[in-house]
Write a protein that binds this DNA or RNA. Structure first.
Length: 348
DNA sequence: ATGCATGAGTG
DNA sequence: ACTCATGCATA
């Protein structure tokens, strides 16, 4: 108790120094972030890299449909995302072609008046948005074609289109066309439905004896356009609803597709093996902010979630942390506040 | 399961 | 310089 009081005073003190004008707000705010223990290790190797990934095409499409104001398509990504025709170059890589009608469809989806069938998964008959691949002139090279592309014949049965509710294949003008359906209904799901799915997903996943990390890795085998693998972190966050609503909505069909495959695979009592990762020596060190510094940061955050660069520098100096560490901490804190769990509680 | 971090996209 | 999806490292 004494400690708590002292902590509060300490926060208040530290806060006034930098946010004097905001001090009056302090007492009316609440600390909402947890206070996990952290070890005082301020040495952070500003290290390496590790490939970062931009949102998947599917996510962008979903996001655009969900909130067209926020995700106003710009030329740069329109050419990458508002496409429904992908072609392959001789190396088997995708390259997109623009389809204006798709943009129009996405915009239509953004309208609240839009109505869609309420069940999922559904057939292709009522689909509105579809990502289509054309194997065009490489149609004679099965190994270069989207979903049917497999690195080994052994996995062909598991990836059979027959088992993927999102997949459809047809031949048009001599071209092999592969489609991935993106059900519009999913673009605007009720949080409760997401919650339900996440729970069922986890349950089934465990029943299948598959780890979160496995799911992430196996995802790449689905060969969905713009979707490779995902990390254990992401799968975990999906299951625990600690992702943004949009993110949850975008990932749902992907994970649903995985579940279909996994269950079909289990049914046919098949097995597969996956492998390891990159084993570089250049591992990044995770910065650890001590509890006391964290309390101060939370104090600052409570009165000013978006401090200017100047203030960030002041805070960094006061806490003896790198400015970038402080900046990122604020970014993450803001992001954390927006996550599903919180926003769901608010809006419900 | 979660803290700190990256990087693409955006204004 | 921010947001957002996502990942590595680690509790």
């Amino acid at each position: 108790m004494h400690r708590a009081i002292l902590g509060f005073l300490f926060n208040a003190w530290a806060t006034t120094e930098i946010f004097e004008q905001d001090f009056q707000n302090l007492t009316s705010r609440k600390m909402m972030m947890d206070n996990k223990l952290a070890f005082s290790n301020s040495l952070t190797s500003q290290s390496p890299f590790s490939g970062r990934y931009s949102p998947t095409n599917l996510y962008r499409v979903a996001a655009a449909a969900a909130d067209s104001r926020r995700y106003m398509p710009t030329a740069s990504w329109k050419s990458n995302c508002f496409v429904d025709n992908f072609k392959f170059d001789p190396n088997g890589n995708f390259f997109p072609t623009i389809d204006d009608s798709f943009l129009a469809r996405a915009e239509a989806l953004a309208k609240p008046e839009s109505f869609y069938p309420s069940h999922f998964p559904s057939t292709f008959s009522n689909q509105v948005a579809v990502a289509r691949f054309e194997s065009s002139n490489v149609v004679d090279h099965p190994n270069h074609v989207g979903l049917s592309m497999t690195s080994s014949s052994s996995s062909q049965d598991q990836l059979s289109p027959h088992h993927n509710p999102f997949y459809n294949h047809s031949v048009m003008n001599g071209m092999s066309v592969h489609q991935i359906a993106m059900h519009p209904h999913d673009l605007d799901i009720d949080p409760r439905e997401l919650e339900g799915f996440a729970e069922r997903f986890k349950q089934k996943r465990i029943k299948l004896g598959v780890t979160q990390a496995d799911v992430g890795q196996q995802l790449s085998r689905l060969k969905m356009p713009g979707i490779g693998s995902l990390s254990q972190s992401t799968i975990c966050r999906f299951e625990s609803l600690t992702l943004s609503h949009n993110n949850m909505v975008a990932l749902k069909p992907v994970l649903h597709a995985w579940l279909e495959f996994a269950e079909a695979e289990a049914r046919s009592k098949k097995k597969e093996e996956l492998n390891g990762h990159n084993n570089n020596d250049k591992k990044r060190k995770r910065t650890s902010i001590a509890a006391q510094e964290k309390r101060l940061l939370e104090g600052f955050f409570s009165v000013q979630p978006r401090p200017s660069g100047e203030k960030i520098a002041q805070i960094a100096e006061k806490l003896d942390l790198k400015k970038n560490v402080v900046r990122v901490w604020f970014c993450n804190q803001r992001q954390k506040q927006k996550r599903m769990k919180f926003s769901a509680i608010q809006s419900d």
